[in-house]
């Protein structure tokens, strides 16, 4: 019987922790459906008395363009950094040469650096390349800083491809590019999904690069626009939360649909890196 009691206690703890974890989200989402009146009349964890879509509608107008911007540069930079990371990881994992490990370590240092250490030059580079305040600038930046983690992930995945497969392809007459194109890439569906989901989440969630590279509507990412809402709607919590809901929605959908791949990405990235 004691065992039974322990199990029940265990589930109670688990559910309580789940509740604590979801609480901020829960109250945030509820608030997004509250009118200003409900904001005062209801406690933060209560359902609204008269649910309204007004906050969501009002903030949609503000968030639509930034979300489009974010989608454009996030998807583009995700694809580019995955491709480059895949090729680099492939060479470093399966065609190791003298010094390849050093090159690998030098590349993945890029995962860990505080971006503040490159922020001033980054702004200077972007304005010189005429990419300041442009989607192109954000794509370039996110691709470049995405390569290290993508390389790390792909190298871990490719290290699991049997060496004999590569040897067989070499003996069969394939060169380094043909092996990649005809064999390794075809075996990379899962690594690409994992890395892409991982990168999508990373880039979507970024705030700092957007903050320093964008200035206007043409490139403003959703994260930065959301932060701006804070100043615009002081104490208008329902509008702030509505904006948050809009911004979170795409990444939340990705997580709920492709979560298991993201988890694999986190694990691969952490265990090895």
């Amino acid at each position: 019987m004691k065992l039974h009691f322990n199990r029940i206690l265990l589930y109670i703890i688990l559910i309580f922790l789940a509740f604590v974890t979801l609480l901020p989200l829960w109250t945030g989402i509820l608030t997004a459906f509250k009118s200003e009146q409900d904001l005062i009349l209801t406690t933060p964890v209560e359902f609204p008395l008269s649910p309204t879509l007004d906050p969501l509608i009002e903030t949609f107008g503000l968030m639509a363009r930034p979300i489009m911007n974010s989608l454009v540069f996030t998807i583009t930079a995700t694809i580019l950094s995955c491709l480059l990371g895949s090729i680099t990881g492939y060479v470093l994992a399966l065609h190791a040469f003298k010094g390849s490990n050093t090159i690998f370590v030098l590349i993945i240092v890029g995962i860990f650096i505080p971006y503040q250490a490159v922020l001033v030059p980054l702004v200077l580079i972007m304005s010189r390349l005429d990419l300041y305040n442009s989607l192109g600038g954000l794509i370039l930046t996110h691709t470049a800083y995405g390569i290290p983690i993508c390389t790390l992930l792909f190298r871990s995945f490719y290290a699991e491809i049997p060496k004999s497969l590569i040897m067989a392809a070499k003996v069969d007459g394939a060169g380094i590019w043909t092996i990649y194109w005809r064999i390794v890439l075809r075996l990379s569906v899962l690594p690409f999904i994992v890395t892409a989901v991982f990168q999508f989440t990373n880039i979507w969630n970024d705030f700092l690069f957007g903050l320093v590279i964008s200035r206007g509507v043409e490139s403003m990412p959703a994260s930065v626009e959301l932060a701006n809402l804070q100043g615009g709607f002081v104490a208008l919590w329902n509008l702030q939360m509505a904006g948050t809901v809009w911004y979170t929605l795409p990444s939340l959908v990705v997580y709920l649909v492709l979560g298991k791949y993201l988890i694999r990405g986190f694990m691969t990235g952490a265990v090895k890196g």
Binding site: T21, L22, N205, F207, G259
Partner: peptide, 12 residues
């Protein structure tokens, strides 16, 4: 559920 917060942006 437990991992959900980590997938959110710091802004959120």
């Amino acid at each position: 559920i437990y991992l959900l917060p980590f997938t959110l942006s710091f802004v959120v």
